[in-house]
Amino acid sequence: MRRTYLGEFEEMILLMVAILNGEGYGVTISEALAEHTGRIVTFGTVHNTLIRLEEKGFVTSELGGATAERGGRRKRIFRITALGNQALQEIQQLRKNLWLLLPPDMLQPGNV
């Protein structure tokens, strides 16, 4: 399979979608990102990244779940796909392997 590149921010967003597990849409993803990483970004950034992730096939989306708070408008709810899951796993595996290659003394805090 062609390896699709996953950027750092994309990876974060993808992780948030995975964490929210079926509850993820624009607002919750932005809030989770702020909560877990402290990053405050514009809504457009999140929106664009989600569309890009969907184009790459890492997430799927469907419309649903209108509430009064949003004036009866539907949400676009994102779910991670098997491909997205695999991509996250691969990244994690790659990191693990790379960490194992580090010289042992580098792991000591203060030596970096």
């Binding site: 932005s30 929106h47 569309i51 419309l63 004036g71 408008r73 676009r76």
Partner: peptide, 16 residues
């Protein structure tokens, strides 16, 4: 094609 969900999301954020 994305107007509906974006407007909704932004409304929700506004309230927050």
């Amino acid at each position: 094609n994305t107007l509906e969900e974006v407007t909704g999301d932004l409304d929700e954020l506004y309230t927050y």
